[in-house]
Every structure is written in structure tokens, then in C-alpha cells.
Simulated scan of single mutants.
Amino acid sequence: MNGKPEKSDRDWIDPDDGVELTEEQLDRAEYAVGDRIVRPARGTLTRDYAAAGAREEISLNVDQDLAEALRATGPDWQSEAAGALREWLNRRGS
């Protein structure tokens, strides 16, 4: 017999009814086609990296003990190292 069940599932949520992103969030989003990143993210949904100051990834060869000591300072070690380099440059008058 084909009839509507007495109690239908009301917990179902249509995936098309998701949260809409703002234009600002879309501007910061990563765009990818499959596993290939077409444009990397420029921030997160709540933070714009460009507004905080542009950052650039560089490679810097240092002694292994120095690298280990930097990493041991905690999860924000790269920002701390950048701050130390900035202070060093300021002292040099550059």
C-alpha cells in the first residue's frame, strides 16, 4: 500500500538552505577545482589577512637547534619570530 506514513521525518534539512556567505567572505575564500587550488584563501570566514597586513611566505635557512627552539616556543612561533626580526631591523635603522 502506498500511503504517507503517519509520522514523517521533520528533521530533514535541505542542503540548499545553508548559510549564505557575504561578498567579503567570498573574496577571502579559497577556490579549488578538485584537488587543484585555483586561488588560495586570503583569510578566513571571520578574519581578513590583508586587513591585518600582507604577509609573505619565505624560506630561511637557520641552524637546526635554532629552528627547534623557535618551534618549541608555541603555536604562534612564526609571528613571534617575525616580530623579533622586525625589532632587529628597527635597531639597525633599516
Rank of each mutant, 00 (worst) to 15 (best):
70 L>S: 08
70 L>N: 01
68 E>H: 03
49 Y>G: 08
52 A>R: 13
65 D>C: 05
69 A>C: 03
69 A>G: 04
56 E>R: 15
50 A>C: 05
76 D>N: 09
74 G>Q: 07
54 A>P: 12
76 D>G: 00
69 A>T: 07
71 R>E: 02
72 A>I: 00
74 G>K: 05
51 A>L: 12
72 A>R: 04
59 S>F: 08
48 D>A: 07
60 L>D: 04
77 W>A: 00
52 A>W: 04
48 D>Y: 10
48 D>E: 11
60 L>I: 14
68 E>W: 06
67 A>H: 04
56 E>T: 05
64 Q>M: 02
58 I>H: 12
73 T>L: 07
53 G>K: 12
57 E>R: 15
62 V>R: 06
64 Q>L: 12
74 G>F: 03
73 T>A: 00
63 D>P: 15
53 G>C: 06
61 N>I: 11
59 S>V: 10
76 D>A: 12
58 I>N: 10
62 V>K: 01
71 R>W: 08
54 A>R: 13
65 D>L: 00
50 A>F: 10
77 W>V: 03
76 D>F: 04
49 Y>F: 15
73 T>C: 06
75 P>I: 13
60 L>F: 14
68 E>T: 03
54 A>Q: 13
66 L>S: 02
73 T>V: 05
52 A>V: 01
70 L>C: 14
63 D>W: 03
70 L>V: 08
53 G>W: 13
76 D>V: 08
70 L>M: 15
54 A>V: 10
70 L>F: 11
51 A>C: 03
52 A>M: 10
55 R>V: 09
64 Q>V: 10
64 Q>R: 12
50 A>P: 00
71 R>F: 00
65 D>H: 01
71 R>L: 03
55 R>W: 02
63 D>S: 14
50 A>Q: 14
59 S>A: 13
67 A>W: 03
63 D>N: 09
77 W>H: 04
69 A>Q: 07
54 A>E: 15
58 I>A: 14
73 T>P: 07
60 L>Y: 11
62 V>T: 01
53 G>E: 12
56 E>S: 12
77 W>L: 01
71 R>P: 06
72 A>G: 01
71 R>V: 00
63 D>Q: 10
49 Y>A: 12
68 E>R: 14
64 Q>I: 07
56 E>F: 04
52 A>G: 11
74 G>C: 05
73 T>N: 03
75 P>L: 10
61 N>Y: 11
68 E>A: 15
67 A>Y: 01
77 W>F: 12
56 E>C: 09
